[in-house]
Simulated assay, not measured.
Amino acid sequence: MLVKSGKSSVANIMAELQKLSAAHSEENIRKALEMSNLATPVEPKPLKEISFQEAEHWYLNSAEFERKSESTKNTYRSELRQFSRYIHTLPKIPNLLAFEDEPLILVEYLKSAGTQNTRSKKASFLRDFFTRTFTRFYELDIKRIKENLVIKIPFNNELPKAFTRVQIEELANLSRLTNDGFRNYTMLWVFLGSGVRLNALTQLQIGDVFYKEKYILVREKGDKLEKVPRFLTPSSLNTLRMYIAFKYGHLKNIDGYCNLYVFSATKGKKPLSDNTVQAMFDSLIEDAQTLSTEEKQRLTIHSLRHSFALFALQEGIDIVTIQKLLGHKSLKTTMIYLELFNSMLLEAIEKHPFSNSAAADLFQGVAEE
Protein backbone atom coordinates (compact mmCIF):
# COMPACT_ATOMS: atom_id res chain seq x y z
CA MET A 1 0.00 0.00 0.00
CA LEU A 2 2.87 2.38 0.78
CA VAL A 3 4.27 1.89 -2.71
CA LYS A 4 0.92 2.69 -4.23
CA SER A 5 0.63 5.77 -2.02
CA GLY A 6 4.10 6.90 -3.09
CA LYS A 7 3.23 6.49 -6.75
CA SER A 8 0.00 8.34 -6.22
CA SER A 9 1.81 11.25 -4.54
CA VAL A 10 4.34 11.51 -7.37
CA ALA A 11 1.53 11.35 -9.91
CA ASN A 12 -0.30 14.16 -8.09
CA ILE A 13 2.84 16.31 -8.03
CA MET A 14 3.39 15.66 -11.74
CA ALA A 15 -0.21 16.65 -12.47
CA GLU A 16 0.24 19.90 -10.53
CA LEU A 17 3.52 20.62 -12.30
CA GLN A 18 1.84 20.11 -15.66
CA LYS A 19 -0.84 22.65 -14.67
CA LEU A 20 1.86 25.14 -13.66
CA SER A 21 3.73 24.51 -16.88
CA ALA A 22 0.60 25.22 -18.89
CA ALA A 23 -0.02 28.48 -17.02
CA HIS A 24 3.55 29.82 -16.72
CA SER A 25 6.73 29.93 -18.76
CA GLU A 26 9.53 27.47 -18.06
CA GLU A 27 11.82 30.37 -17.14
CA ASN A 28 9.43 31.72 -14.49
CA ILE A 29 8.91 28.28 -12.97
CA ARG A 30 12.68 27.76 -12.77
CA LYS A 31 13.18 31.15 -11.08
CA ALA A 32 10.40 30.43 -8.55
CA LEU A 33 11.96 27.08 -7.63
CA GLU A 34 15.40 28.68 -7.19
CA MET A 35 14.05 31.53 -5.03
CA SER A 36 12.20 28.98 -2.85
CA ASN A 37 15.45 27.00 -2.45
CA LEU A 38 13.72 24.03 -4.07
CA ALA A 39 16.19 23.92 -6.95
CA THR A 40 19.89 24.76 -7.28
CA PRO A 41 20.73 27.29 -10.00
CA VAL A 42 22.62 25.67 -12.84
CA GLU A 43 25.51 27.74 -14.05
CA PRO A 44 25.72 27.69 -17.85
CA LYS A 45 28.76 25.85 -19.07
CA PRO A 46 31.22 28.04 -20.94
CA LEU A 47 31.11 27.30 -24.64
CA LYS A 48 34.17 25.51 -25.89
CA GLU A 49 36.22 27.40 -28.44
CA ILE A 50 36.23 25.52 -31.74
CA SER A 51 38.79 26.58 -34.30
CA PHE A 52 37.65 27.19 -37.84
CA GLN A 53 40.00 24.43 -39.00
CA GLU A 54 38.34 21.95 -36.64
CA ALA A 55 34.87 22.97 -37.82
CA GLU A 56 36.01 22.74 -41.45
CA HIS A 57 37.39 19.21 -40.95
CA TRP A 58 34.23 18.00 -39.21
CA TYR A 59 31.94 19.49 -41.85
CA LEU A 60 33.70 17.82 -44.79
CA ASN A 61 33.62 14.45 -43.03
CA SER A 62 30.09 14.68 -41.66
CA ALA A 63 27.27 12.34 -42.64
CA GLU A 64 25.17 15.38 -43.64
CA PHE A 65 27.82 16.46 -46.16
CA GLU A 66 28.22 12.92 -47.50
CA ARG A 67 24.48 12.72 -48.26
CA LYS A 68 24.68 15.66 -50.67
CA SER A 69 24.89 15.06 -54.42
CA GLU A 70 28.34 14.94 -56.00
CA SER A 71 27.82 18.27 -57.76
CA THR A 72 26.76 19.97 -54.51
CA LYS A 73 29.73 18.48 -52.65
CA ASN A 74 32.13 19.73 -55.32
CA THR A 75 30.57 23.20 -55.23
CA TYR A 76 30.64 23.39 -51.43
CA ARG A 77 34.26 22.18 -51.26
CA SER A 78 35.21 24.95 -53.64
CA GLU A 79 33.23 27.54 -51.67
CA LEU A 80 34.82 26.36 -48.42
CA ARG A 81 38.32 26.70 -49.88
CA GLN A 82 37.55 30.25 -51.03
CA PHE A 83 36.07 31.22 -47.67
CA SER A 84 38.99 29.66 -45.80
CA ARG A 85 41.48 31.64 -47.91
CA TYR A 86 39.55 34.82 -47.10
CA ILE A 87 39.53 34.40 -43.32
CA HIS A 88 43.24 33.59 -43.38
CA THR A 89 43.81 37.10 -44.74
CA LEU A 90 42.25 38.65 -41.63
CA PRO A 91 44.48 40.01 -38.83
CA LYS A 92 43.27 37.19 -36.58
CA ILE A 93 41.68 33.94 -37.74
CA PRO A 94 38.26 33.85 -36.03
CA ASN A 95 37.09 30.77 -34.15
CA LEU A 96 33.65 29.37 -34.86
CA LEU A 97 31.79 31.39 -32.21
CA ALA A 98 33.28 34.65 -33.49
CA PHE A 99 31.10 34.49 -36.60
CA GLU A 100 27.95 34.72 -34.46
CA ASP A 101 29.44 37.51 -32.32
CA GLU A 102 30.80 39.43 -35.33
CA PRO A 103 28.68 38.39 -38.33
CA LEU A 104 29.77 41.47 -40.31
CA ILE A 105 32.85 39.42 -41.26
CA LEU A 106 30.51 37.54 -43.58
CA VAL A 107 29.02 40.74 -44.98
CA GLU A 108 32.49 41.94 -45.97
CA TYR A 109 33.27 38.59 -47.55
CA LEU A 110 30.10 38.62 -49.67
CA LYS A 111 30.84 42.16 -50.85
CA SER A 112 33.87 40.81 -52.69
CA ALA A 113 31.66 38.60 -54.91
CA GLY A 114 31.26 40.05 -58.37
CA THR A 115 27.60 39.39 -59.17
CA GLN A 116 24.32 38.96 -57.32
CA ASN A 117 24.16 35.29 -58.35
CA THR A 118 27.66 34.64 -57.01
CA ARG A 119 26.75 36.28 -53.69
CA SER A 120 23.60 34.17 -53.46
CA LYS A 121 25.57 30.97 -54.12
CA LYS A 122 28.17 31.85 -51.48
CA ALA A 123 25.48 32.80 -48.95
CA SER A 124 23.69 29.49 -49.54
CA PHE A 125 26.87 27.56 -48.76
CA LEU A 126 27.64 29.63 -45.66
CA ARG A 127 24.13 29.08 -44.28
CA ASP A 128 24.59 25.33 -44.62
CA PHE A 129 28.12 25.35 -43.16
CA PHE A 130 27.29 27.41 -40.08
CA THR A 131 23.93 25.72 -39.46
CA ARG A 132 25.61 22.29 -39.46
CA THR A 133 28.65 23.23 -37.38
CA PHE A 134 26.80 25.31 -34.76
CA THR A 135 24.25 22.52 -34.32
CA ARG A 136 27.04 19.97 -33.93
CA PHE A 137 29.29 21.86 -31.52
CA TYR A 138 26.93 24.19 -29.64
CA GLU A 139 23.31 23.17 -30.32
CA LEU A 140 22.71 26.85 -31.11
CA ASP A 141 20.66 28.58 -33.77
CA ILE A 142 22.72 30.99 -35.89
CA LYS A 143 20.16 33.78 -35.87
CA ARG A 144 22.56 36.71 -36.35
CA ILE A 145 24.57 34.89 -39.00
CA LYS A 146 21.43 34.04 -40.97
CA GLU A 147 20.28 37.65 -40.85
CA ASN A 148 23.49 38.73 -42.55
CA LEU A 149 23.32 35.98 -45.16
CA VAL A 150 19.99 37.11 -46.58
CA ILE A 151 20.78 38.33 -50.08
CA LYS A 152 18.29 40.93 -51.28
CA ILE A 153 17.92 40.68 -55.03
CA PRO A 154 16.43 43.79 -56.61
CA PHE A 155 14.75 41.90 -59.44
CA ASN A 156 11.40 40.12 -59.64
CA ASN A 157 12.65 36.82 -58.33
CA GLU A 158 9.30 35.07 -58.54
CA LEU A 159 9.47 34.76 -62.32
CA PRO A 160 12.14 32.70 -64.08
CA LYS A 161 14.74 34.56 -66.12
CA ALA A 162 15.17 33.67 -69.78
CA PHE A 163 17.31 34.73 -72.74
CA THR A 164 15.86 36.19 -75.92
CA ARG A 165 16.43 34.49 -79.27
CA VAL A 166 18.88 37.21 -80.30
CA GLN A 167 20.88 36.72 -77.11
CA ILE A 168 20.93 32.94 -77.59
CA GLU A 169 22.25 33.38 -81.12
CA GLU A 170 25.08 35.61 -79.88
CA LEU A 171 25.99 33.19 -77.07
CA ALA A 172 26.09 30.32 -79.57
CA ASN A 173 28.40 32.29 -81.85
CA LEU A 174 30.64 33.27 -78.95
CA SER A 175 30.88 29.66 -77.80
CA ARG A 176 32.37 28.68 -81.15
CA LEU A 177 35.22 31.16 -80.61
CA THR A 178 36.30 29.69 -77.28
CA ASN A 179 38.88 27.01 -76.62
CA ASP A 180 37.05 23.68 -77.11
CA GLY A 181 34.56 25.62 -79.22
CA PHE A 182 32.89 22.51 -80.69
CA ARG A 183 32.37 21.08 -77.20
CA ASN A 184 31.01 24.32 -75.74
CA TYR A 185 28.75 24.90 -78.73
CA THR A 186 27.39 21.35 -78.39
CA MET A 187 26.73 21.76 -74.66
CA LEU A 188 24.83 24.98 -75.31
CA TRP A 189 22.60 23.33 -77.90
CA VAL A 190 21.93 20.27 -75.76
CA PHE A 191 20.81 22.64 -72.99
CA LEU A 192 18.53 24.52 -75.36
CA GLY A 193 17.29 21.42 -77.13
CA SER A 194 16.34 19.44 -74.04
CA GLY A 195 15.98 21.80 -71.08
CA VAL A 196 18.09 19.53 -68.87
CA ARG A 197 19.79 20.77 -65.71
CA LEU A 198 23.53 21.40 -65.52
CA ASN A 199 24.41 18.27 -63.55
CA ALA A 200 22.38 16.10 -65.93
CA LEU A 201 24.44 17.40 -68.83
CA THR A 202 27.86 16.96 -67.21
CA GLN A 203 27.01 13.38 -66.15
CA LEU A 204 25.89 12.38 -69.68
CA GLN A 205 27.60 9.22 -70.97
CA ILE A 206 27.78 7.92 -74.54
CA GLY A 207 25.52 5.01 -73.65
CA ASP A 208 22.84 7.47 -72.50
CA VAL A 209 22.29 8.80 -76.02
CA PHE A 210 19.59 7.06 -78.10
CA TYR A 211 19.65 8.45 -81.62
CA LYS A 212 16.79 6.42 -83.07
CA GLU A 213 14.46 7.14 -80.15
CA LYS A 214 15.63 10.81 -80.06
CA TYR A 215 16.24 11.03 -76.34
CA ILE A 216 19.02 10.98 -73.75
CA LEU A 217 18.96 9.38 -70.30
CA VAL A 218 19.57 11.72 -67.38
CA ARG A 219 19.42 11.50 -63.60
CA GLU A 220 16.54 13.39 -62.09
CA LYS A 221 17.17 16.09 -59.52
CA GLY A 222 17.99 14.52 -56.16
CA ASP A 223 18.15 10.97 -57.58
CA LYS A 224 21.65 9.52 -57.82
CA LEU A 225 20.62 6.15 -59.28
CA GLU A 226 17.65 6.15 -61.64
CA LYS A 227 17.93 7.63 -65.13
CA VAL A 228 14.94 8.87 -67.08
CA PRO A 229 14.55 9.84 -70.76
CA ARG A 230 14.60 13.45 -71.94
CA PHE A 231 13.78 14.18 -75.56
CA LEU A 232 15.95 16.45 -77.72
CA THR A 233 15.14 18.63 -80.69
CA PRO A 234 16.45 17.17 -83.98
CA SER A 235 19.08 19.91 -84.40
CA SER A 236 20.43 19.40 -80.87
CA LEU A 237 20.53 15.63 -81.29
CA ASN A 238 22.33 15.96 -84.62
CA THR A 239 24.91 18.34 -83.12
CA LEU A 240 25.45 15.92 -80.24
CA ARG A 241 25.83 13.00 -82.68
CA MET A 242 28.49 14.86 -84.70
CA TYR A 243 30.42 15.84 -81.57
CA ILE A 244 30.50 12.29 -80.18
CA ALA A 245 31.57 10.92 -83.60
CA PHE A 246 34.28 13.59 -83.90
CA LYS A 247 35.72 13.11 -80.42
CA TYR A 248 35.14 9.42 -79.69
CA GLY A 249 34.59 7.77 -83.07
CA HIS A 250 38.04 6.15 -83.03
CA LEU A 251 37.28 4.52 -79.64
CA LYS A 252 34.04 2.86 -80.74
CA ASN A 253 35.40 -0.69 -80.51
CA ILE A 254 37.08 -0.46 -77.10
CA ASP A 255 35.63 -1.95 -73.93
CA GLY A 256 33.75 0.61 -71.87
CA TYR A 257 33.01 2.88 -74.83
CA CYS A 258 29.41 3.42 -73.69
CA ASN A 259 30.58 4.45 -70.22
CA LEU A 260 32.72 7.34 -71.48
CA TYR A 261 31.50 10.78 -70.42
CA VAL A 262 30.48 12.89 -73.40
CA PHE A 263 31.81 16.18 -72.01
CA SER A 264 35.18 15.52 -70.47
CA ALA A 265 38.72 16.84 -70.23
CA THR A 266 40.14 13.38 -69.45
CA LYS A 267 39.27 11.49 -72.66
CA GLY A 268 35.89 10.49 -71.29
CA LYS A 269 37.13 8.97 -68.04
CA LYS A 270 35.73 11.71 -65.81
CA PRO A 271 33.02 14.29 -66.52
CA LEU A 272 33.63 18.02 -66.62
CA SER A 273 32.77 19.55 -63.27
CA ASP A 274 29.68 21.70 -63.00
CA ASN A 275 31.92 24.59 -61.93
CA THR A 276 33.97 24.32 -65.14
CA VAL A 277 30.87 24.52 -67.33
CA GLN A 278 29.46 27.33 -65.20
CA ALA A 279 32.68 29.34 -65.51
CA MET A 280 32.72 28.85 -69.29
CA PHE A 281 29.14 30.09 -69.56
CA ASP A 282 29.73 33.03 -67.21
CA SER A 283 32.51 34.09 -69.56
CA LEU A 284 30.14 33.97 -72.54
CA ILE A 285 27.62 36.11 -70.66
CA GLU A 286 30.31 38.62 -69.75
CA ASP A 287 31.38 38.98 -73.41
CA ALA A 288 27.85 39.20 -74.85
CA GLN A 289 27.01 42.61 -76.33
CA THR A 290 23.24 41.96 -76.49
CA LEU A 291 23.02 41.58 -72.69
CA SER A 292 22.64 44.64 -70.47
CA THR A 293 24.61 44.98 -67.25
CA GLU A 294 21.47 44.13 -65.29
CA GLU A 295 20.84 41.03 -67.41
CA LYS A 296 24.42 39.86 -66.95
CA GLN A 297 23.87 39.91 -63.20
CA ARG A 298 20.62 37.96 -63.17
CA LEU A 299 20.90 35.52 -66.08
CA THR A 300 22.74 32.25 -65.44
CA ILE A 301 23.32 28.91 -67.10
CA HIS A 302 20.05 27.71 -65.53
CA SER A 303 18.31 30.42 -67.58
CA LEU A 304 18.88 28.19 -70.62
CA ARG A 305 16.39 25.75 -69.10
CA HIS A 306 13.93 28.60 -68.62
CA SER A 307 14.52 29.67 -72.22
CA PHE A 308 13.73 26.14 -73.43
CA ALA A 309 10.37 26.27 -71.63
CA LEU A 310 9.54 29.79 -72.76
CA PHE A 311 10.32 29.14 -76.42
CA ALA A 312 8.15 26.02 -76.24
CA LEU A 313 5.24 28.15 -74.96
CA GLN A 314 5.79 30.70 -77.71
CA GLU A 315 5.52 27.95 -80.31
CA GLY A 316 2.18 26.82 -78.86
CA ILE A 317 3.27 23.67 -76.99
CA ASP A 318 0.81 23.05 -74.15
CA ILE A 319 1.88 23.39 -70.52
CA VAL A 320 1.36 19.70 -69.65
CA THR A 321 3.70 18.64 -72.46
CA ILE A 322 6.28 21.18 -71.28
CA GLN A 323 5.97 19.73 -67.77
CA LYS A 324 6.88 16.30 -69.15
CA LEU A 325 9.73 17.66 -71.26
CA LEU A 326 11.25 19.40 -68.23
CA GLY A 327 10.66 16.45 -65.91
CA HIS A 328 8.69 18.46 -63.35
CA LYS A 329 6.84 16.24 -60.90
CA SER A 330 4.22 18.91 -60.27
CA LEU A 331 2.38 20.97 -62.89
CA LYS A 332 2.40 23.84 -60.39
CA THR A 333 6.17 24.18 -60.89
CA THR A 334 5.73 24.50 -64.65
CA MET A 335 2.84 26.97 -64.39
CA ILE A 336 5.24 29.76 -63.42
CA TYR A 337 6.35 29.90 -67.07
CA LEU A 338 2.80 30.88 -68.01
CA GLU A 339 3.13 33.91 -65.72
CA LEU A 340 6.36 34.90 -67.44
CA PHE A 341 4.79 34.34 -70.86
CA ASN A 342 1.74 36.44 -69.98
CA SER A 343 3.90 39.28 -68.61
CA MET A 344 5.86 39.25 -71.88
CA LEU A 345 2.64 39.37 -73.90
CA LEU A 346 1.46 42.36 -71.87
CA GLU A 347 4.76 44.14 -72.46
CA ALA A 348 4.56 43.33 -76.17
CA ILE A 349 1.01 44.66 -76.58
CA GLU A 350 2.00 47.89 -74.85
CA LYS A 351 4.78 48.32 -77.43
CA HIS A 352 2.42 47.60 -80.33
CA PRO A 353 2.34 50.56 -82.78
CA PHE A 354 -1.44 50.81 -82.46
CA SER A 355 -1.37 51.04 -78.64
CA ASN A 356 -0.77 54.80 -78.86
CA SER A 357 -2.44 55.35 -82.19
CA ALA A 358 -4.17 58.66 -82.87
CA ALA A 359 -7.23 56.64 -83.84
CA ALA A 360 -7.68 55.80 -80.17
CA ASP A 361 -8.24 59.51 -79.44
CA LEU A 362 -11.10 59.70 -81.91
CA PHE A 363 -13.70 58.56 -79.41
CA GLN A 364 -12.05 59.98 -76.27
CA GLY A 365 -14.75 62.59 -75.82
CA VAL A 366 -17.52 60.09 -76.38
CA ALA A 367 -16.10 57.77 -73.70
CA GLU A 368 -15.99 60.62 -71.20
CA GLU A 369 -19.62 61.72 -71.79
Rank of each mutant, 00 (worst) to 15 (best):
V3A: 11
S5D: 08
S9M: 08
S9V: 11
V10H: 11
H24W: 09
N28V: 12
I29F: 03
E49F: 04
S51Q: 03
Q53D: 15
E54L: 07
H57I: 15
L60F: 00
S62C: 08
S62A: 08
A63E: 15
F65A: 08
K68Q: 02
E70P: 07
T72V: 10
K73E: 12
T75Q: 12
S78H: 11
R81S: 09
R81W: 13
Q82L: 10
F83E: 07
T89H: 02
I93H: 08
P94T: 02
L97P: 06
A98G: 09
E100H: 02
E102C: 15
P103V: 05
K111Y: 08
Q116C: 05
S120V: 12
K122M: 14
K122P: 00
R127D: 01
F129Y: 03
T131L: 01
L140M: 05
D141L: 14
I142A: 09
R144W: 04
K146L: 10
K152I: 10
I153Y: 08
E158C: 05
L159H: 02
L159Y: 07
I168Y: 09
T178I: 14
T178W: 11
D180P: 02
F182S: 10
F191C: 04
S194E: 05
V196D: 00
R197A: 00
L198E: 12
L198A: 08
N199I: 01
E220W: 04
D223A: 14
K227L: 01
P234R: 10
P234D: 14
P234E: 15
L240C: 09
R241T: 13
K247R: 13
K247V: 13
L251N: 11
N253A: 11
Y257K: 02
C258R: 15
L260F: 09
K267R: 11
K269C: 05
K270I: 14
V277E: 02
F281Y: 12
I285Y: 00
E286F: 13
T293M: 12
E294A: 09
K296L: 04
Q297F: 07
H302N: 04
H306Y: 01
S307W: 03
E315Y: 10
G316S: 01
I322K: 03
L325P: 01
G327F: 03
T334R: 08
M335E: 14
E339G: 03
M344L: 02
I349Q: 04
E350K: 04
F363E: 04
E368R: 15
E368V: 07
E369F: 09
